[in-house]
């Protein structure tokens, strides 16, 4: 009862904030009436901003109308510079999932190795420490030069940026499995392979999934920047293209859509995290 009423009240506050923000936005960008008298021919050249005092920023209603038009037709394709936002998103999500999946394939086994072997942990530590803080976009020229394909290069950049949190968390999770659980496996003469899958993996899973959740967040941040850089397709390219078109409505729409997709990706991983967590 208290729980629902709290949720309801929070919802009301959220909605109020949204309305106030929308109203302020609407008032802020709407015209202030004729600014000054000028020659009608000159006024035509100057446009609404100079004549009516109207802001160049679109209002909330313009953005809503834009979103509606995108929703009506998300997957249209009218040539390389005019594709529906749905297609652009699909490109971006596809690249993220590919790069992220590849990073998983490398990070999980390698993290296991580092977590299990103090020797490998120390041997690989300097490489990880130096590579981890490098902005993934710094890899882009090298990727373009060696791979010679802009789309694969952006997948590579996603791979690189998703790698580190997963690798570090897997290694940490594996190395900090409680000694007593390992002792249980030892006294039961459980072989190394079975031990890895029945004791270490379930024990480290919450930490590993936390790393995966950080990775997917970073990957989604980086894909927008990477696509702005390489161009062609994707939501990042879409944003930059609409900026070049001076369509601020589309830029704002993309910001909202990017946020929405990022939230969905994060929530999906949160769901996985709940599934593998265990109370002690």
């Amino acid at each position: 009862m208290r729980q629902t009423s709290l949720r309801l009240r929070a919802g009301i506050v959220s909605l109020t904030i949204l309305l106030i923000f929308g109203l302020a936005w609407h008032i802020g960008v709407s015209g202030t009436g004729p600014a000054q008298q000028m020659d009608p021919e000159y006024a035509k050249l100057m446009g609404q901003t100079a004549v009516q005092g109207k802001s160049a920023m679109p209002g909330p209603l313009d953005v809503l109308a834009k979103i509606w038009s995108h929703l009506k037709e998300p997957f249209y394709d009218r040539g390389p510079n005019d594709k529906g936002i749905g297609i652009q998103l699909a490109y971006s999500i596809g690249r993220v999932l590919l790069g992220y999946g590849l990073a998983m394939l490398v990070a999980l086994p390698l993290g296991f190795l580092i977590g299990m072997s103090p020797l490998m942990a120390r041997a690989l530590d300097p490489f990880i420490q130096i590579m981890k803080p490098v902005s993934p976009l710094a890899w882009m020229p090298l990727a373009l030069y060696t791979i010679k394909d802009s789309s694969i290069s952006s997948i590579f950049v996603i791979f690189i940026c998703s790698l580190w949190p997963m690798l570090i968390n897997t290694a940490f999770g594996v190395s900090s499995v409680r000694k007593e659980w390992l002792n249980v496996a030892r006294t039961l003469e459980v072989g190394p392979f079975r031990r890895a899958f029945t004791v270490i993996l379930p024990a480290a899973a919450p930490t590993i999934v936390t790393g995966m959740r950080i990775s997917i967040g970073i990957a989604w941040l980086v894909i927008v920047a990477a696509e702005m850089l390489v161009g062609g397709t994707g939501i990042g390219y879409f944003v930059w293209n609409e900026w070049n078109n001076l369509s601020i409505t589309n830029v704002i729409t993309s910001i909202l859509v990017i946020g929405l997709v990022g939230m969905i990706l994060d929530q999906a991983l949160a769901r996985v995290a709940r599934a593998v967590s265990f109370p002690e």
Binding site: W181, V184, T187, L188, E189, P202, F278
Partner: peptide
Amino acid sequence: PSLDRAVIFQSHALLPWRTVLGNVAYAISS
């Protein structure tokens, strides 16, 4: 370590992601 010598740990050392049945069955299937 050997399965001929079973240990009861002070901290019980159960695997928290397994059920009661799963914990006992894990030992038996080992």
